[in-house]
C-alpha cells in the first residue's frame, strides 16, 4: 500500500483551480518532492492532506485511509510542518513540544520523554527552556520539525522546509531530514529550490499551474528533458538577435536568463549548436533548473492558445 496516493485531486478557490486533477503515489520510506514556483499548487496539496483545507474533488489517501472520510485517523499518522512554523510564542521551547504531545494523545509523562528524544535528535536540548523568540530561524524550523515528530508519524509533510534559512542552517535541516529518511519515515516536501529537491528527494513531481508536468527521479528527469549537458551562451551585445534566430532555426530549446542564453538538449543527448559568431559558449552538467525551465516554458505555452 502506498504511503500517500492522490487520484485526480482538485482544489478550487472560487473560479481558480489551484490543484487541477493531480495524481501521484508516494511509496513507504520514500522522499517525494513537489517542485514548482509559488502558486503551482504544492501548498494546497499538503494542506488538503493535513486536513487544513477541504478537498474540492478527486481522492486523497494516506496509508489507505481516505483523507476526506477519516481526517482524524489520518492526522494521528501524519506529522506536518507548515510554512509558518506555527510555533507558540507564549510557551518555552520544551513546552511547545510537550503541549503538542499532550494534544495528540500522549500522556504528560510520555510527552516529556518524547520531547527529550526529539530535542536531542535536533540538538536543541540546551535550548529547552529558551523562549521561541530567542531562537534563530534555523532553530525555529528545526523545532517545528521536532514538533511534527512528537507522535512518531509514518509520514511527515514539509512545506518548504528550508525557505528563508541561511546556507548553514539549510544543510543542517537537510542532514536531519536525511536521518529521518534512514529511519524509514516517508517524507512529502514542497520546495522551489532545485538543489534541495535534487539532494533530498528520491522522486520529484514538477508542478506548474496546479498540474504535474512530469514525475521521476532527478537524474531521469534531467536526462529526459535537459539532455546530458547544457550550454550557456553569453552573446556579445550586437549578436543576440542573430543567435536567437540561429537557435530557433536549428530547432533547439533555449531560454534567455539575464545575460545568458541557456540551451538544453533532451533524451539524453547534449544540444548540438549551429555555427555561431560573437558568442562565448560554456558547457556544464544539466540540472533540474534546466528541466524546470524546459517543462514550465512548455506548460506556459499550452495555456495560451
Amino acid at each position: 500500500m502506498a504511503a500517500i496516493e492522490a487520484r485526480g485531486l482538485i482544489k478550487t478557490f472560487g473560479s481558480l483551480r489551484a490543484v487541477d486533477g493531480v495524481s501521484f503515489q508516494v511509496e513507504r520510506g520514500e522522499t517525494y518532492g513537489l517542485l514548482g514556483p509559488n502558486g503551482a499548487g504544492k501548498t494546497s496539496i499538503m494542506r488538503m492532506l493535513a486536513g487544513l483545507s477541504p478537498i474540492s474533488g478527486g481522492e486523497l489517501f494516506l496509508s489507505g485511509l481516505n483523507v476526506a472520510e477519516q481526517p482524524r485517523a489520518v492526522r494521528t499518522r501524519l506529522g506536518v510542518v507548515t510554512q509558518a512554523d506555527g510555533l507558540d510564542g507564549e510557551l518555552s521551547v520544551r513546552q511547545n513540544l510537550e503541549v503538542f504531545g499532550f494534544l495528540i494523545g500522549l500522556s504528560r509523562r510520555e510527552a516529556r520523554a518524547r520531547a527529550d528524544e526529539v530535542l536531542g535528535f535536533f540538538r536543541l536540548r540546551e535550548r529547552g527552556n529558551a523562549e521561541v523568540d530567542e531562537l534563530s530561524g534555523g532553530m525555529r524550523r528545526r523545532l517545528a520539525i521536532a514538533r511534527a515528530l512528537m507522535g512518531k508519524p509514518e509520514v511527515v509533510v514539509l512545506d518548504e522546509p528550508s525557505t528563508g534559512l541561511d546556507p548553514e542552517s539549510r544543510i543542517r535541516v537537510w542532514e536531519e531530514l536525511a536521518e529521518l529518511k534512514r529511519a524509514d519515515v516517508t517524507l512529502l516536501m514542497s520546495t522551489h529550490y532545485m538543489d534541495e529537491a535534487e539532494t533530498l528527494c528520491d522522486r520529484i513531481a514538477i508542478m506548474h499551474s496546479g498540474r504535474i508536468l512530469d514525475e521521476d527521479t532527478p537524474p531521469e528527469l534531467i536526462r529526459r528533458h535537459a539532455g546530458s549537458a547544457a550550454l550557456d551562451l553569453r552573446p556579445s551585445g550586437s549578436s543576440r538577435a542573430d543567435i536567437r534566430d540561429a537557435l530557433t532555426n536549428a530547432g533547439l530549446r533555449f531560454r534567455e536568463v539575464g545575460a545568458v542564453i541557456r540551451v538544453t538538449g533532451g533524451n539524453g543527448a547534449p544540444p548540438v549548436l549551429p555555427p555561431l559568431e560573437g558568442v562565448q559558449v560554456s558547457e556544464r552538467a544539466a540540472n533540474l533548473e534546466d528541466v524546470f525551465l524546459a517543462l514550465a516554458g512548455r506548460g506556459l505555452q499550452e495555456e495560451q492558445p
Binding site: 493535513a50 486536513g51 487544513l52 482524524r72 485517523a73 492526522r75 494521528t76 501524519l78 506529522g79 506536518v80 507548515t82 509558518a84 512554523d85 506555527g86 510555533l87 507558540d88 510564542g89 503538542f100 494534544l103 495528540i104 494523545g105 514538533r147 511534527a148 507522535g151
Partner: peptide, 14 residues
C-alpha cells in the same frame, strides 16, 4: 495570526 490553530488542527483536533 500566529498560526496556533493551524498547528493544533494538524493534530487530531476539530
Amino acid at each position: 495570526g500566529q498560526s496556533y490553530y493551524e498547528t493544533a488542527l494538524t493534530a487530531p483536533v476539530t
